[in-house]
Structure formats: structure tokens, C-alpha cells
Amino acid sequence: MKSYTDNIKEISKRLLKEDKVDMVIGYRTGSVPLMHQPFFAQNQEEVDEFVWDSNCGLNLANYITDRTERIGILATGCNSRNIAVHIVEGKIKREQLYIIGIPCKGMVDRHKLSAMADGDITSVEDENNGSITITGQNFSKTVDKAEVLQENCSVCVHRNPVIYDELAAEEVTEQKRDDVDPYARVKEIEALSPEEKWAHFDDLLSDCIRCYACRNACPLCYCPLCFVDESNPQWVGKSIDHTDVRTFHFLRAYHCAGRCTDCGACVRSCPVGINVRDFTKKLEKDCLELFDWEAGLNTEQRPPLDTYRPDDPEEFIK
């Protein structure tokens, strides 16, 4: 995807040169492989640090909350939807943004790649032909990118940005819901008995260290004071007692209901590899089924939990 990087640099330099924006938010190579870091380029020289490949998994919409500058920002399908959510929720104005749309071919799952490697991965080469080469001490391995895609990317049905001012590449073909079932995993869990479900989530969360990386990486989690940090009243215990852990994950997911775009930043940022999407994807499915709603597809419509309609589903109230 070298041409993506070149196009992104070219557009960013032009925007900064013409003084259309104060900064461009993109990615640069991070200090560890497989995780490019978000980067704010404020002049044309800094733009040269920009990079684009399959390791740009963090959601850039996280960095525009309440900003007052004029911002150029890279946006894949899910990132652009999160930007739209930000606009709807009044966290940024559309006029402030120049959105560089990036038709996305998916990001790789660093946990999957690490599991495949015979040691620590020191460098990653994105071949731009659908294969990824990972290299470390005494080993080098080329794998099919489709096999190591993040799960949310492999079932993504909105790869092209929904709002943008300019595209950095040709639009890519969208996957259809008939071909890939985005909710296959949710359905698997739904089919379990209550005991099995409880056990599944117990097991899922058993490694959680309550670092809140998932919350911090999430563009939706912008509350100045998160409910887990509040001490008066203290809504939830701060221990790693499994009840506290579950309460945190359950409530955080619920706060994202009807807003989550399944960008996968939570999963990607988790240091212990918890599939946080087991919570959020269920809510996304419910929103689609109950309210015919997908988050961030436009900048006008209020989210379903923010509005009242006389025909809202209420079968659960007796």
C-alpha cells in the first residue's frame, strides 16, 4: 500500500501549505512493530513521517474530541463513522474537519500474528499484494493477510468512508452481509445456555487487569470523568474481583450502544487480548434488529437511545 502513503503525504502537504488546516492527524511508525501510533503533523516536514499499511488499527476519531483547531484527518470506513458520531454528538464541528477518506482493506490482528511467530516480531512488511511478512530473530514468515485480519475487519461491511472531503485512493468493493455474516460470533454465543454464557464471559474476562486501555482507545469514551473513576459515589469497585470486572465491561459496552461502529480499537489495544467486541457486537446487532440502526452513517440522525419514537420496541416491559 505504498501508494496510499504517498497520496496521504501529498494531500496532507497540500492542506498544510494552503493553510486549510492547522494539523493533519495520521499514523507514524510506533516504537514497537504492528502498532503504528497516531501522529499530529503540524508542518510539511512532519508529514514525511506519515505511514499507511495494515497496522493502523487505532481509531483517529479518538483524538478530535472537543478540539478547536482546523484538523485534517485520515478516515477509513469505521473511523469516518466515528467522526460522524462525534459530529452528531457535538464533540467537533464538520467545518473544522478536512476528512481524507481512505478506502480500507482491513487491519491485521497483532495477537494472531504474535501467536504465529516463533519468537518476538521485530519487523513487519506489508507486501501490498495481500500478504504480510513478519520477521524476528532467526525467523521470517509470510502469511496471507486475509488469514490474519482483525475479526471486525474480516466481517466489515463499511470499508469505504461514509463522509470525506477527498479520497486518497479508489473505493474498494464492499463486502455484503449475505456473503459474510458480521454476527456469526454473536449468534454462537446466543445459542448457548445461560450457564454456558456466564462461563464464556467469565473465561473471556479472566485475564482482565482493569487497565482501561479499551476505554482509552475508544473514540466513544470521551466522558471527562468515567463512571469507573468516580469515587463519590463509587458506582463500581476498583478491584479485579470478577463482579467488578464484569460490571465495568458490561456498563462500558452499554454506554456504547447505538454508537459503536465496531472499529475494533478496544480489542487491538487490549494488552491481554480480550475480545471486548463480544459485548459491543451484540449491542450493534440489537440496534440493527430493533431500531434498523447503524451508527455513524450520516451526520444528521440522532442515535436510537437518544430519541423517543412511539413505536419503539417495548416487548420486554410487562
Binding site: 454473536v186 454465543i189 446466543e190 448457548l192 445461560p194 450457564e195 454456558e196 454464557k197 456466564w198 462461563a199 464464556h200 464471559f201 464484569r246 458490561f250 459496552a253 452499554y254 450502544a257 459485548f279 451484540k282 449491542l283 440489537d286 420486554f316 416491559i317 410487562k318
Partner: peptide, 20 residues
């Protein structure tokens, strides 16, 4: 809310919503 709680393994019998 009810759906997600049930999804997590709370039995439906334990969850009731009513307007009184």
C-alpha cells in the same frame, strides 16, 4: 439492556421490567 444481560448469562427469569 435486558438483551445484553441475558447475552452475558443472566437467566431471563431474573430480569423483569415493568411500569408501575
Amino acid at each position: 439492556m435486558k438483551n445484553l444481560l441475558e447475552h452475558m448469562g443472566i437467566e431471563p427469569e431474573r430480569l423483569h421490567f415493568s411500569w408501575i
